[in-house]
Design a protein around this nucleic acid. Sequence first.
DNA 1: AGAGTAGGCGCC
DNA 2: AAAGGGCGCCTACTCT
Length: 523
Amino acid sequence: MKVLLVPQGNRAVLIRLDEDGSPSGGSSPAEEVTDDLVGSVAAIEREHAPRWVWEDTSRIYPRLLDGGVRVRRCHDLALVDAILAMRTGRTTVPSTPADLRPGLFDADPQADPVAVLADYRRQNEEIGDDRALQLLAAAESAGSLAAAEMTFDGLPFSAAAHRRHLDAMLGARPVDGSTPPALVKLENEISSAFGRRVNPGSPAEVVAAFARAGIELTSTRAHMIRDIDHPAVPLLLRHRDLSKLHSTNGWAWLDAWVRGDRFRPVYVPGAVVSGRWASRGGGGLQIPKPLRASVIADPGHTFVAADAGQLEPRILAAMSGDPRMVAAAGTADLYAPVAAESFDGDRARAKVAVLGVLYGATSGEARSLLTRLRARFPEAVAVVEEAARAGERGEVVRSWLGRACPPPPPQWWSTGDAHARGRFTRNFVVQATAAEWALCLLADLRGRLWSSRSELVFFQHDEVVVHCPLDDAPWVAEAVAAAADSATRLMFGDTAVRFPMETRIDRFYGAPAAEPDVESESD
DNA sequence: AGAGTAGGCGCC
DNA sequence: AAAGGGCGCCTACTCT
């Protein structure tokens, strides 16, 4: 069962739909107007658990969450339209940007239920019996529900622990919002080292200061200056570090984004062209490692944090069906068999080669490694190289489930960098497919956690974090593994490629001790 | 004063 | 270890 929902202020129009998207009940459409939006949805969800069809989850769902109502499934017309429009090259204004203030809701533009219904039926027609596209639409929509719920629930975050960290690193918080003591001290020391006043935050001033010391720089980036023998260098690097902490995740950030020991970034599904989520405000998807020590579970609770190791190479293996690459991706460490096949067992080289082929590395060494990779894994390499060549010709490429990349801008044809475009399309096919796999995992896991005491609290490209009562952790860990398996079957059928989840159960999200062995990398 | 760009950093 | 893809966010600085 499906129900079209068109909110109009506190009222809403509800239309029951058959599977094909036509209104139920034939000549007398099952249309209903309610002035209790939240109550009506709750009742229908309880009884039928339909797929809700609505214009924009990010605008509608926060109201339901505020009212204590959650729904299992939906079809987000805006997100699906963005996918369909990109596929056909329809020029659309990138639709309405999501309402970035969850909980706040302005008056609805008076949406016309008839027009919304027509949109849905047009989308259904366009999707047709393309199973991949059906899956993509469902996964994208499920993701929109998860995103709204994660913003609503928030990530458990100890403000006190973070304050202690800030105090230890920056000194006591200045009451007037001025520069923290540790930064003032470093600024003075840097100036002393250069023999005159230098603002370490100004690349131009730093370049000039080094020039006066007889050191010519084209950039002041950390890796450029790290090995320079000058007393100001370590001070500058330290200043960069602390200054970043202060400006990006300092006290002001804490005040703005953490309330009630929950960090609530706004997630924006589909905002990245590859289908990855973006986040707006607070740096939700760029939580620096040091900050994660303050992500602490509630009393009696813990985190189950799982990430898909070596996701993109495994995706390439599954997409290509390359027998040797599939075999390599059937093991716990994909790089080891690749190393054995092509690089005399040199795992580091194998990894450089594989990442290089995914990203389109151009440096000298990567090229020769690529040749060796191609010799033993020709079909895997061909998948990305064909995508790269298509990009260089100015063509559009698609992910496994059918998400299209944007076309080159009009002026590209005269002035564009063909190789850059090739690198983009090369990476797109893999990154976008990886995003689809992760979205399928998220959707499936969300279903498994439905009506449990566990909540999804974080999702970042290839990683998911569940906050749950201590006793539930083993069960949740199993659910994550099962969800990964479901995602794999949904997308790739009975492939021999494995997508192992590296799962940690810990009250602290920031795993302090570096793992002694194997993978510390993300890809 | 506000918008836009570049440099820098950090997340996957 | 970096490189190559995708992002967001901060500061400095320039343009309008």
